[in-house]
Amino acid sequence: MVQLRNTHWRVRYDRVDGHGKITLRYAGRLRLLGIGHAHNRQRIILFIDGPDAIAINKTTGEIIAEYTIDPSKNYQPKKKNPHTKKGNDDPTHHQPHTQKVPGHRVNDVPGLHTTRRIGDLNP
C-alpha cells in the first residue's frame, strides 16, 4: 500500500515506449524510467514528488512501478516490490517440464569435446 503524503505531486500522463521505458526530466536532465516490456505501449499516469515517483496504469489504476530517482544515473530501475508475485499465476499457463538425465552433458558424449585444439582433430 502506497501512502501519499500531503505534498504537491507533479502529475504526468505518458505512454510506455516499445522498449518498456518512459522519460522524465529530473534535476534538469532526462532520465529513463524502466517500466517493463509487459507494459509496452500502455498509457500511464506518473506521480512525482521530489525523488519519488509512482507509475500507474491509466486504464486499470494498478500501480505498476515505484522509483526513487538517483540523480547520478540516467537509467532508473523500478524498486523491488515484495508484494508483486513472480511468474504466471494463471492455472491454464503451461510450463514445460524438463529433467536432467545423468551422463547427458556435452563432455560426456564420447568423441565430442569443446576444448579440443586444432592439432588434436583427426581428419
Rank of each mutant, 00 (worst) to 15 (best):
R105E: 13
K100Q: 10
L30N: 14
I56D: 00
G50E: 07
L112W: 07
I63K: 01
I63M: 01
K79W: 05
G28I: 06
H97L: 10
H8P: 01
I48A: 05
G50H: 06
L32N: 10
I48M: 10
K73L: 15
K58H: 11
Q95N: 05
M1Q: 09
G61P: 00
T115N: 15
V16H: 00
V101L: 12
Q99G: 02
P96T: 02
R29Q: 13
V106S: 04
L33P: 01
P82M: 12
K80Q: 11
I44H: 00
R31T: 14
K58W: 10
R105V: 03
H94D: 10
D14W: 04
K100D: 08
V2C: 02
F47W: 12
M1P: 06
P51G: 11
L24F: 14
T114W: 10
G18S: 08
T60I: 01
K100E: 10
I69F: 04
G50N: 03
A27Q: 14
R41C: 03
T114Q: 07
P91T: 04
R10S: 15
H104L: 08
I69L: 09
T98Y: 11
A53T: 02
Q42L: 09
H37E: 03
Q42N: 04
M1G: 06
Q42E: 11
H39R: 05
T60P: 00
G119H: 12
S72F: 03
I22P: 00
E62R: 07
A38C: 07
D14M: 06
I35E: 01
D90S: 02
I45N: 03
L121V: 13
N122E: 08
T7P: 00
G61C: 02
E62L: 06
R116S: 13
G28M: 05
N6V: 14
T114G: 06
L112R: 02
D120H: 11
W9L: 06
K85G: 01
W9Y: 15
A27Y: 15
D49C: 13
T92W: 04
R15Y: 11
H94Q: 15
V106N: 07
T84E: 13
I45A: 09
I118M: 10
P123Y: 08
A38F: 14
H39L: 04
H39S: 06
N81W: 09
H83L: 15
L4K: 05
K73S: 13
M1T: 11
K73G: 02
E62A: 10
T114H: 12
G119I: 14
E62Q: 07
P77G: 12
K86F: 09
K80R: 15
I69S: 01
R15H: 03
L121G: 05
Y26M: 04
I45L: 12
Q76N: 05
L46H: 01
G50Y: 07
N6Y: 15
P77H: 15
L4M: 09
V109Y: 12
H113G: 05
D89R: 06
T7H: 12
N81S: 12
R105P: 00
Q76S: 03
N40Y: 06
E66F: 05
V2F: 15
A38P: 02
I48G: 00
P96M: 14
R10T: 13
K86I: 05
G87E: 02
H94P: 00
P91Y: 06
D14Q: 08
I63T: 07
K86V: 12
